[in-house]
Design a protein around this nucleic acid. Structure first.
Lengths: 187, 187
DNA sequence: AGCATCCTTTTACATTTGTTAAATAATCAC
DNA sequence: GTGATTATTTAACAAATGTAAAAGGATGCT
């Protein structure tokens, strides 16, 4: 829990009371590498915080496994398109490695917003930051070549290359594994 | 102002007091077709609501004009990557047609959050919805072909085809105008 | 109406990416 | 460690997209 509270402090500091209230709706979980946290088709009601290890959100498009995003230590992970719409998610969350995480009960969190505006503000800021990242990702997908996107990724997040199989990196970049192999061979 | 208040009601109803407070930080603006609202390089401190007409957010990549998004009547438009980060935006907002809009002073809005949690909640929800749209857009860009993206667009938003030049639609889809022309010729 | 400008399509060719299959390398389970 | 499985690379060919240039269309201005 300490890791989550430290992370929170960097975003928006909250009172001891709110920290206690938050702690009450959190639980520790751990999953093995390549194991799903929640199945595809269920409505997302959990916000995860990665304590150790890494997660990826993925889905199937025409039978092919596509990685939407990966996150490692000290990151928030949620299937927001389900969490904020209340609709079932076509996506699943999976451990990239053996992973320890904190699960925040989203429904109870949203209830807490009524009594603790500072908690509402904290998570508003967390998701605003995530929103900004997503907008920047659009820019990258929209008009950079696959090769540019690959080099940008290893520049911004060199650790990804060591921790994530290339097939997942390929689908994250929006290309096939073969295409990524070719890009890597050029140089 | 009525249009904005009607729109708000569909998202999260607020008290008369909050409506009055909101109205005080709003101003009416209108711009001509193909005119910029704010220049590239300025930090975004305004949230716009389209009353009549349409807007697009665009930027230049290697000298080429790229449309990130377009919105029409009863929509919120903001350069969130600047608004939520406080950094200068590389993007500009432009009128697609002669457009009437309401400009919300974002700094004053954020101050109002302290005295009116329901306003904070309202805009939290507005941007959560926008975030969900953005995540779905990633999915579209990440693993649909340009042809699939084009047909999805005209299925979801047929009016776009009548109101937006094809060159902007092309860059929105992440392809060249020539490529879009070819796609349109297939059938 | 006439001219200029901008938008859209078409053509030809280069480049990139996808697809399928096979070969090689790395990892996992027993 | 050995064999099986999975991941990655390579090859050959097909399909899609980019680039540059030209030709039509549409639109707007005077």
């Amino acid at each position: 829990m300490k890791e989550l509270l430290d992370y929170i402090t960097t975003i928006h500091d909250i009172s001891v009371e709110s920290k206690i209230a938050l702690e009450e709706i959190c639980s520790h979980e751990s999953i093995k590498k390549n194991t799903d946290l929640q199945p595809i088709g269920h409505t997302c009601k959990t916000i995860y915080f990665v304590v150790k290890g890494g997660l990826r959100i993925y889905y199937y498009k025409a039978g092919i496994d596509i990685t939407e995003i990966f996150e490692f230590e000290n990151s928030i992970v949620a299937r927001v398109e389900s969490l904020f719409s209340g609709r079932p998610s076509r996506k699943a969350i999976q451990g990239i490695e053996d992973t320890e995480l904190i699960a925040i009960n989203a429904n109870r969190l949203f209830e807490l917003y009524d009594t603790s505006p500072e908690l509402e503000r904290l998570f508003r800021k967390i998701f605003e930051d995530a929103y900004v990242k997503t907008v920047n990702r659009i820019e990258s997908l929209q008009f950079h070549t696959a090769e540019q996107r690959y080099h940008q990724l290893i520049k911004d997040h060199p650790e990804v290359l060591k921790r994530v199989p290339l097939k997942h990196i390929a689908s994250y970049l929006g290309i096939t594994q073969v295409s990524l192999s070719r890009i890597r061979a050029r140089r």
